[in-house]
Amino acid sequence: MKPPKFEYRAARTVEEAVSLLQEAGEDAKILAGGQSLVPMLNFRLTRPSHLIDINKVSELDYIREKDGKLAIGALTRERTIERSALVRQKFPLLTEATEWIGHVQIRNRGTIGGSVAHADPASEYPALVVLSDAELTIQGPDGSRTTTWDEFFVTYLTTSLQPFEVLTELRFPLPKPGSGYAFVELARRHGDFALVGCAAQVTMNGKGTCQEARLALIGVGPFPHRSPDAEAMLKGQKLTDKLISEAGQKISEEVEPEGDMHASTEYRRAMSKVFTERALKKALSRVQGGK
């Protein structure tokens, strides 16, 4: 199908984007990479009055290390993140998550801010925002504010972004020394929406004890699932296969996935255990120098 009619405005700066949003009113939408929004427009599932294009807002396209955090501008393309040597060196979990997103030509256009603001329950980047307690900077008519995932993600495709606000920057705290990471995902084909996915980051001390474990799962709820209980089970312990399996079991009991024609509730629940275990084992092997 073809998109419904809308008015189009292109912004050059964040400030201009905010004022264009205000002029356009509450039915306006931001157009970033468009890899989720344009399909919905083509199917006429969404009918915004205006699209405010931020693709030329070059001030939002950057990756920097700043105060122990990786600061990424919202308009940074997924492909840029995938190829960034800085990301690969400082926060390789982000590189690995990016490789799961769609295909090269989707990642060429898709942006990190767009992915997080769209808040698809199967998207990879929201999982990393949740896993690492990233800070999100949002600019609106009254200036800028900073928020975290627990306030940001509301439900399916819904965030606490207000009508005239733009997500501008994501800041990921860098993993501590001695950390390993993994992003594993189950999809029908590579690049399809994840049925279940798990991001894991474990930090070990020199004696092989887990100092900190972080886990975030996608595809099993309205937004990524974080499990303080499973993380607490792992903290201060040796990560044996038995303990990893218990953490996976814990998570599979916590999540409430919806079934659909591709995967039932029960299957997703079972896979949330399997993929938690795989992610933890891979993360652990990477602390020990594995690939």
Partner: peptide, 10 residues
Amino acid sequence: GVGVRSCLTF
């Protein structure tokens, strides 16, 4: 020079 879906671009 960058490959994109022309159906997802206006």
